[in-house]
């Protein structure tokens, strides 16, 4: 029984993907629209993209910018969020600033940033950085705020200085929450990566997509959408593995049995 349930659980995502593709196929056949290729046509176009050296270089350049933007954002945002969570003065200073930046679509800032820094890597990486920072800051802030006072007192009694308490108690205690923010940030990094390349059309995965759109190569457009989606799924799966490993101590021990299983 349990092995059957486990097998079903493992197969479920595969069924979901097949179901989605099947629905796409049917919808496309029914609509008979030139700008809406069938799933099979789109999938057929994937090897052409991945086989092309130039496209591959473009996609890797995108991923590189994304990785750099994400890494810098995480390295800056976690300490800032933790400090905000533990110091009212720091929170009072940064909160209004972040509240102004939060609702602004980061891509909307791109024209201005392009004006200052050009259309190159720096601009795009900066936009990715901005996109990733806010959720990571927010979750680090919330995580740090929620750290039990008595835990910090226990550390203080052992002789930990305030900096040591921040690094050795607040950081690990808030880690589950921080990683939730990083996971959101990772997806946002992918989204801002594509949008930045859509605005600053020069290179990258987004550029391939929109060039194809301009030229009416709709199978390539949809193939790129599949590739970007797959990258998102892979990155998220890798991140989820790392996350689960880092915060094993906080996860519930057993899967909660669902009421219908």
């Amino acid at each position: 029984m349990t092995s059957l349930a486990a097998a079903a659980r493992r197969a479920a995502p595969v069924f979901a993907c097949i179901g989605l593709l099947a629905a796409w196929q049917v919808a496309s056949l029914a609509l008979k629209n030139d700008s809406f290729p069938t799933a099979i046509e789109a999938i057929r176009a994937i090897p052409d993209i991945l086989g092309d050296k130039e496209s591959l270089i473009n996609i890797l350049a995108s991923l590189r910018r994304m990785a750099i933007g994400f890494a810098i954002a995480v390295l800056v945002s976690i300490p800032l969020g933790l400090l905000m969570g533990r110091s009212r003065a720091v929170a009072a200073f940064f909160n209004p600033l972040l509240m102004v930046i939060y609702p602004v679509p980061k891509a909307a800032l791109m024209p201005i940033i392009m004006l200052w820094l050009g259309v190159g890597d720096i601009t795009k990486t900066l936009v990715i950085f901005l996109g990733v920072s806010l959720p990571v800051i927010y979750h680090s802030f919330e995580g740090a705020k929620a750290v039990e006072e008595k835990m910090l007192w226990s550390g203080a009694a052992m002789g930990l200085s305030s900096v040591q308490r921040l690094v050795r108690i607040v950081l690990p205690a808030a880690l589950p929450e921080i990683l939730t923010g990083c996971r959101t940030g990772l997806v946002l990094a992918l989204i801002t990566m594509i949008t930045s390349e859509m605005i600053a059309r020069q290179s990258g995965a987004g550029n391939i997509l929109f060039n194809a759109l301009d030229m009416g190569q709709y199978d390539t457009v949809f193939a790129m959408i599949i590739i970007v989606g797959a990258m998102g799924i892979c990155l998220d799966a890798i991140f989820e593995r790392v996350r689960a490993r880092l915060v094993r101590w906080s996860e519930p021990q057993f899967d909660m049995p669902l009421s219908f299983s």
Binding site: S154, A156, A157, M158, P172, W249
Partner: peptide, 28 residues
């Protein structure tokens, strides 16, 4: 301020959840 000459034990336990039992006891 706090110091290791005065050791607190709280109702809320306040253990370090990311440390094992041994890790918690060895911390001090």
């Amino acid at each position: 301020g706090p110091g290791p000459d005065r050791g607190p034990v709280f109702q809320e336990f306040a253990l370090f959840p990311w440390k094992t039992v041994l890790g918690n006891v060895m911390y001090g």
